[in-house]
Amino acid sequence: MTGARRLMFWSGVAALCAWVLVPIYLIALGAFGGRAAAFRWPKAFTLVNASLEQLATFLRIEGVWNAALNSVIAASLTMALSLLLGAPAGYALARYRFRGAGAFRLMVLLTRAFPLAILALPLTVVFIRAGLYDTPFGVALVHTALALPFAALVTAGLFAGIPRELEEAAWVFGCSRLQAFMRVVLPLALPGLAAAAIFAFVISWNEVFAASVLTVRNRTLTAYLLTVLAESPLHYRFAGGFVLIVPSVVFIFAVRRYLFALWGVSNR
């Protein structure tokens, strides 16, 4: 590339980076600036008399704290469930050829063509009867339905990437099927499994619709923010938005090496 073209190229890259980062920076200003900053006019583009106090006040609102706790519980349950159910299925898809594998794969892929969260609607009735309505566990069940297809396909790719010969070598050198899995396959798959788990967590943490439909008092953070949106002051909304974003950004950083395994490969 010539000098001028290189300059244009990198300006483009920088502009796109700014496009992503500046809005996050600005909502952080809103979250830390509190009431004063939220209604200030014209706005300052740097932090003035910022403090963690503003954010802490927001978190001290009782509903918020509970909702955040519910979100964490639901997301953790989703993470555990989708991995516990999805990883064995992924292993079966990767290692065995069996009748019905195609049908199962199709069902998993089909979930992609459906707006799954909407399926929470009819579940309300069932959940009320089963005592799951308005519980983080109920929310986690629906979120698992969202995350499970990902977990299954991603782990299938993950396990397929671990040479079968390694497992066979373990068998030949004295391992049972389970021992070989625990000693050879699992340690190799662990980082990828962790990424898939984190991803399931983020799916649940971010989901709004099903969580709103399935809870009334034990809201998750997203559901809580959605319902109080209209009546909450601006700086609370900003604080809420910021609190929602932070874990996601950290998570994406943690799983960045696996993003392709999570999205790219599994979409083929």
Binding site: V20, I24, W205, E207, V208, T222, L244, S248, I252, L259
Partner: peptide, 9 residues
């Protein structure tokens, strides 16, 4: 980064 950001956020 926005991959991890919910639509609400």
């Amino acid at each position: 980064i926005p991959l991890g950001v919910s639509d609400l956020a």
